[in-house]
Design a protein around this nucleic acid. Structure first.
Length: 778
RNA sequence: GGACCUGUAAGCUAGCGGUACAACUGACUCGUUUACACCGAGUAUUCCGAGGUUCAACUCCUCGCAGGUCCACCA
């Protein structure tokens, strides 16, 4: 099995439409596949988590059938940047419509190569059933969602002070924030009160002209006398009130806190709480709008003002501190707080409901549910869904300046770009102003179940059976999807959610920014996708896995063993055409009953998302039971045997190998397909192993532990031989065992594998070699 | 600071209230059979620490130590 063969199999699947959705099947298991962002290529984390979801998908495909589409997320900043780069354009210089058209065109060109990685990994999605979050259909669904929610009173527009990214020049959501450790200058400035110095420490001196108040802790004896008085802002020369507020921590800085509009989120709260009048001095580009430093960018102004203060001796102390600031996760820029008009979806009033909705979903693993609860409980703001970006799905609304009327397009006209269409106000007939903002990308990707079901004319309804979700986007993708599903349909979007862990390298998360990434494409090239998938099945769902290249060897060995076992089996099945003997030999019966138990265990494991258990179980059964012991015991019977006894072995070999292949097919789709095509297809009618039905557990079959006893005794024989440094096929004169009675039931096969001539009953195991037996036997 | 997760052989991971047959990789010692040296057999080493519950704890509880993830902290 090599990479070339894997690629041929991918082509075979595609050509034969093995993964085509069968809509006539009423029991489909619908999966809300995560759409990866088209930028760069598939990384190890993808390979890991998509493999894991594919194990489950393939299992359900064989069991009942799946609805398993594939999408790409092309609606955010990464796509915008990529398209700009590829076409060497600036979106700002184009109309939004033009740019989106260019995106669609570019994506059409680059998406196939991008998606190929997922195909090469062996994903069993129906790739003909695919969407992009920026395509016309997604735009339509997203805009429709906006209109519906607005009309239902769940969306409002408001001028509020929100998180603003001066680099991307857009409002962003709480969920898009990231922490970044920075070192800053912590300067103690000389304010004054009653002619005396009042020292205040800050890292943001450029906001001094926006200072609206000074807080001291009411319990802080140093400053109680000052409460109610005015503090004079140095250099800018104006006065602000000194207010008692518990939020001022006595130990921090000088214990005096300056409140600016707006230095951080805390300032926003403080100003609202004390009904202070803000004086905003930052514009949307992050430049100062007033005074001596007008037009300067924040950092530039900060530097300049500190220089000036130094010269005027207004700084009493200065030190470097290391502190953590919020940055925009897309660009790493420190965020600001600026009052702007934005659209919001009401979520704060429904926190309890969302917790309830979360409880209705089964979380795998269970503890991930707590992360969801944690996030919902910690929410402080409504979901800001508008972005002041050029690229994205337009907010479908026009506003009449005169009568404040909002005008929405009718559903049949969707998708629309308001900037491209002139609308008149139905009340006053004056020209309405088109909304220029676009929707947050999550406002669209939170609709993936609806987008997916639209691909089949809504024949697949919510809730879906499964959402595979990365752990770090529980707070965004999972949460927002639950929100939208509730707001639109008052229901949960899916019954189950499975959450994968992360891939680490030497204990650290593999990530581009840390530079410790390993390309899965190279691993597939070297070891094959099956080996990579086998590796990904090696840890529990939700657990992190430390990557080591040598672990790929394990999977590679299993692939090899499977191929060799198949080769051996079919070497002895030359004239076998699937016939069943009248009566099975006891050993064959016994082995099949053991296999039946394995079918049960593995089925249950996949049903509960414990693919790792399934992997361990099937690997162990195949290797230890089938290869090392069953094959060893029946070898001579198929080589030299005749008639019914031989036929019984052939029947058992054929059927147990086929069952084993099916059980391992969800994890290793390539090698199982190859073996199936090479050996089984001519007898079985089904054209791919992945279209075969999942093996059924037969309740009537009696399970017996005898096989374990046979293994136990064989092991003792082997141990003895090993200790005596004899070859494993050397004969034994007499084997004494307490399991005498059981062995007798399978006598010939046991003798064949052990080399024993007679079997005796005895309290303890004993192996008697022929007289010359201490020597090596010719 | 809060929430959650993790701590098992040299390494990566399972597992379970009743001796870890621990599995796999690696090491070492043997063997090699009409599928397989990407093979077979064997050997060695072990449940982070301290308490508690229990007849019995690697497993449950508490505390501690260490690592991780997400959130908060941003004067």
């Amino acid at each position: 099995m090599d990479t070339k063969q894997e690629k041929e199999i991918v082509e075979f699947w595609e050509k034969e439409k093995i993964y085509k959705t069968d809509l006539s099947n009423k029991n489909l298991f619908p999966i809300d596949t995560p759409p990866p962002t088209v930028s760069g290529a598939m990384h190890m984390g993808h390979a890991f988590s998509y493999s894991q979801q594919d194990f489950i998908a393939r299992f359900h495909k064989m069991k009942t059938g799946v609805f398993y589409p594939f999408g790409t997320d092309d609606n955010g900043l990464p796509t915008e940047r990529l398209v700009e780069k590829i076409n060497n354009v600036k979106s700002k210089n184009m109309s939004r419509k033009e740019f989106i058209e260019l995106c669609l065109k570019t994506l059409k060109k680059i998406t196939p190569a991008f998606v190929q990685d997922w195909k090469n990994l062996g994903m069993s999605c129906d790739f003909e059933m695919s969407y992009s979050t920026i395509d016309k259909n997604s735009q339509k669904i997203s805009q429709k969602s906006f209109i519906e929610l607005y009309k239902g009173g769940e969306i409002y527009e408001k001028k509020v002070t929100t998180i603003w990214c001066p680099e991307c020049q857009t409002a962003i959501a709480q969920a898009e924030l990231e922490d970044k450790k920075l070192s800053s200058l912590f300067s103690t400035l000389k304010f004054s009160c009653d002619g005396k110095d009042l020292l205040i420490a800050t890292t943001r001196p450029e906001l001094l002209p926006a200072c609206v108040a000074v807080f001291v802790n009411p319990d802080d004896k140093r400053y109680t006398k000052l409460i109610g008085k005015k503090a004079k802002v140095p250099f800018f020369d104006y006065e602000v009130p000194i207010i008692a507020d518990k939020s001022a921590e006595m130990e921090k800085g000088t214990g005096v806190l300056m409140i600016c509009s707006y230095g951080d989120r805390f300032d926003v709260d403080a100003i609202n709480r004390h009904k202070l009048k803000p004086n905003v001095i930052l514009d949307k580009n992050g430049r100062l709008t007033e005074g001596k430093y007008k037009g300067m960018k924040i950092k530039e102004a900060r530097k300049k003002i500190l220089e000036d203060f130094k010269n005027m001796n207004l700084i009493s102390e200065q030190k470097e501190i290391s502190h953590v600031v919020n940055v925009h996760d897309k660009c790493g820029t420190e965020i600001e707080f600026i009052p702007t008009e934005q659209w919001f979806i009401k979520i704060i009033d429904k926190k309890k409901i969302f917790i309830e909705q979360g409880k209705k979903i089964k979380w795998y693993p269970e503890f991930m549910h707590k992360r969801y609860d944690n996030w919902v409980n910690g929410l402080e703001w409504d979901w800001s869904i508008s972005r002041d970006r050029h690229f994205g799905i337009p907010i479908p609304v026009w506003k009449c300046d005169k009568c404040n009327e909002l005008i929405f397009p009718s559903e049949k006209d969707l998708p629309v770009d308001p900037l491209e269409i002139k609308k008149k106000c139905p009340k006053c007939n004056s020209l309405a102003v088109p909304e220029s903002k676009v929707l947050d990308t999550w406002a669209t990707s939170s609709l993936t179940p609806q987008i997916a079901s639209s691909l089949v004319n809504d024949k697949i309804k919510l809730p879906f059976s499964l959402r595979p979700n990365a752990h770090d986007i529980i707070r965004t993708w999972a949460f927002y999807t639950i929100v939208k599903s509730y707001l639109h349909k008052k229901q949960i979007p899916w019954e189950n959610i499975m959450i994968s862990g992360i891939v680490s390298l030497g204990g650290e998360k593999m990530s581009k920014s840390k530079g410790n990434v390993i390309a899965p494409q190279n691993i597939i090239e070297k070891y094959g996708a099956d080996a990579l998938r086998f590796w990904a099945a090696g840890s529990k769902l939700g657990e992190d896995l430390d990557y080591q290249e040598k672990d790929l060897v394990t999977g590679k060995k299993v692939i090899n063993k499977l191929e060799n076992a198949a080769k051996f089996v079919f070497m002895n099945l030359e004239n076998y055409r699937g016939e069943k003997p009248k009566k099975l030999e006891p050993l064959d019966e016994l082995f099949l009953s053991n296999l039946n138990e394995v079918v049960k265990t593995i089925t249950e494991s996949f049903e509960t998302y414990e693919y790792n258990k399934a992997r361990a179980e099937i690997e162990n059964f195949f290797w230890k039971y089938f290869c090392d012991n069953y094959l060893e015991m029946v070898k001579k019977r198929v080589y030299q045997g005749t008639g019914e006894k031989k036929l019984s072995a052939q029947y058992t070999l054929y059927n147990s190998l086929l069952t084993i292949l099916k059980l391992i097919a969800p994890i290793m789709p390539f090698v199982t397909e190859k073996i199936y095509q090479n050996y089984f297809k001519k007898n079985e009618k089904v054209k791919s192993i992945h279209l075969c039905e999942w093996p059924e557990f037969d309740k009537k079959k009696k399970f017996s532990k005898d096989f374990d006893i046979l293994i136990e005794d064989l092991t003792i024989v082997r141990q003895e031989k090993s200790e005596k440094k004899l070859s494993l096929n050397s004969p034994i004169e007499k084997f004494t065992t307490p399991n005498h009675k059981i062995i007798l039931s399978y006598l010939d096969d046991f003798k064949s594998a052990s080399g024993a001539i007679t079997i005796d009953l005895g309290k303890e195991h004993k192996v008697n070699f022929p007289k010359a037996g201490t020597e090596k036997v010719e």
